[in-house]
Design a protein around this nucleic acid. Sequence first.
DNA 1: GTGGTCTAGACCACG
DNA 2: GTGGTCTAGACCACA
Lengths: 133, 133, 133, 133
Amino acid sequence: MLLTLDLDSEVPIYQQIRDRIVEAIADGALAEGSALPSTRHLGADLGINFHTVNKAYDLLRNQGFIRINRKTGAVVRRDTTSGPAEDGYADEWQERLRTLLAEAVVLGLEPREVTGRCETVLGSFAVKSGTRP
Amino acid sequence: MLLTLDLDSEVPIYQQIRDRIVEAIADGALAEGSALPSTRHLGADLGINFHTVNKAYDLLRNQGFIRINRKTGAVVRRDTTSGPAEDGYADEWQERLRTLLAEAVVLGLEPREVTGRCETVLGSFAVKSGTRP
Amino acid sequence: MLLTLDLDSEVPIYQQIRDRIVEAIADGALAEGSALPSTRHLGADLGINFHTVNKAYDLLRNQGFIRINRKTGAVVRRDTTSGPAEDGYADEWQERLRTLLAEAVVLGLEPREVTGRCETVLGSFAVKSGTRP
Amino acid sequence: MLLTLDLDSEVPIYQQIRDRIVEAIADGALAEGSALPSTRHLGADLGINFHTVNKAYDLLRNQGFIRINRKTGAVVRRDTTSGPAEDGYADEWQERLRTLLAEAVVLGLEPREVTGRCETVLGSFAVKSGTRP
DNA sequence: GTGGTCTAGACCACG
DNA sequence: GTGGTCTAGACCACA
């Protein structure tokens, strides 16, 4: 199974699909050029309406993660080797990171534990080892 | 101004209020015991309905960040010095961190940049430096 | 009718709804997985605003009794077979019990009557008979 | 100190005062005829407004626990030896008991634990040992 | 069709 | 003056 969903989560299903696929790309399970299942197929697999899958794929396309083509279906467009981020993206992303880290330190996680967990997560990804040319 | 909102964001207003307050606690602008503005007052300041502020405060209370008292209003209950996190919290939190970091590395941020930004953010917080006694 | 309310009571309506639903779960009328009426529907049935029902459901969710799902609405999450209580819950609960029992014995109920009524109430619930495996 | 309050509780202060005094009567710390502190005195002791104490005493009088006299102040009117309850009281009380017990069994307390805790609490009260004539 | 968000205004409880 | 409750209605997100 490509994905596992929590239908009772307050996170919308389409968002969960998006999140799991982004994570699958990050950890190397889906490399650039990989084909994603068809929306109808994945919807059937997950027991949800294919329109919901459609919305997730739309979101992934708008965010630059995949390419959608009527003939070939959805294909991974970026992975961790695909080149640098767009201008301004990192700063916008850091704002969200700031919110997430703030919650953790206020609720009692030590800074060293926070950085440790960041490194653990990064280590689980299939990231390139050196700098890009 | 305590808070700045983006009324056009798809993030709900009450969630933005919650996020900004958590960040303010993390960076030391709001220490344990600090009083928050009254819901009606803050609502007026921000140009929004006080019920929306109420919902944000309710959320903060349910998540353990503040306590609410009829006489004194809302008061910060936790800050970065308030003690360790609840069991299981860190693991649940790491799942959300994983999603956020995955997005960054796929969209082209180098791992070293990711960890650098984590440390930058943590450094901006008023975190305790050593282990707690 | 699922619920009967006393609109003249000083107990808030949303609290009454919460109490009646918890009781319905306890006595087996609502088993784990049962669907609750939609907020708008129940509000119409009871002649109250759906926001009030919403607040009751929110409370039930925060206390772990139900889960709420956009598609399926509110569903019972715990019943008497769902497993042991959280650490510390029983002691906090006993404080409330103490207050209630104190009132009864001072106002003239015999201890044997108090225990008898406790057992009567427990007997009316659909409680598991032995220890859990 | 006669009472300990939790100023951050969502239970109103006047209600907490009422509850603690009822418990003190139940466990024998306050026997019938005992004088309660003056409202101003108790308010000063607790660091709260004496009007709040006044409201608690009013409630206790309306519920039959104390007698208030301009000259002698507030005096305990009932204790566990004062005779049987009013007609209908026990049934109304049982409704509240039912709500409280329902919560416990749904949240995972075993029936035997519930009855055990009831008996523990009753055992802590200074209750008469036999039947009344 | 479901719940979620936001606005708005009234009245009450608390201290 | 503070938060809490309840009502009311509009619009949106989700599935």
